[in-house]
Design a binder for these strands. Structure first.
Lengths: 128, 128
DNA sequence: TCTTGACCTTCCAGTTACTGGAGAGATTAT
DNA sequence: ATAATCTCTCCAGTAACTGGAAGGTCAAGA
């Protein structure tokens, strides 16, 4: 499929999709007319990139994560160690996100009564 | 306290702390010699910024979130609606992070037996 | 007192990850 | 046939830092 459909399916701007080709993160085949031609697998990679980027992973992180699924010659033990270190990062992010959510929930609840403490829980926001 | 201690306590680079002053996100008082002087409250804001940025919120998101805790004249109902929309964003991120973690866990597990499927779960990676 | 070294300042240039727009060719719709 | 809508590349600009130069401040030691 052409770039616009790829962008639609992956929920990314066309510009961004083109950029990911430029930096060789997702490099589609080309048609005879020079148009990029995206496969279903390319779309999956793009969708993955959209998710991982919105979760605060850098493009280099993403490149590493994608490579886990691509490089068939890589030793399993290496794949495992990269995956495990990423899992640790993700679990740290999960904890922070949960605490951020709890803090905001408290704040929203305190608004229900339409009475809000002077400076509600900035301490909470700053983390434990 | 001076900028280096602020950076240490907030676990941010000095450069970044200075940058947040420049864009008026966290603007400390100045001492007579021109040095920035950070209060405990400034540190809390910086710590919050470090967390929120690593979770994929833009600086403008952060500015909005910080303003929830600052603008005492804002109507409670408005605070509540901003907080609630941010909570929705956070919960979406939580779900994606969990699914990413599960995918990587499966991958790491499949490596244990030192035998990995040809193209393991790229579909899972691309999200449901 | 002088000076060394670790701090602080501003300013300017470079990086990452886009984002917008110009200019030109290809394709599709009427 | 022609207008609208793609697509391409290239170049410039933005967001959020990041590094380095040039210079001011300050506490400790010779």
């Amino acid at each position: 499929m052409k770039i616009q459909q790829a962008a639609t399916l992956s929920e990314l701007p066309v510009k961004t999709v083109r950029y990911y080709d430029e930096i060789e993160l997702v490099s589609p085949d080309r048609q005879d007319n020079g148009y990029r031609f995206y496969s279903d697998k390319d779309i999956e990679k793009l969708r993955f990139l959209g998710r991982a980027r919105s979760l605060g992973f850098s493009l280099e992180d993403c490149r590493q994560l994608l490579s886990l699924y691509e490089d068939k010659n890589r030793a399993s033990s290496e794949v495992k160690s990269i995956a495990e270190s990423k899992i640790l990062e993700i679990e740290a992010k999960l904890i922070e996100l949960q605490s951020l959510r709890d803090t905001l929930t408290k704040l929203a609840d305190s608004c229900s009564g339409d009475e809000r403490p002077d400076c509600p829980i900035l301490e909470g926001l700053a983390g434990n």
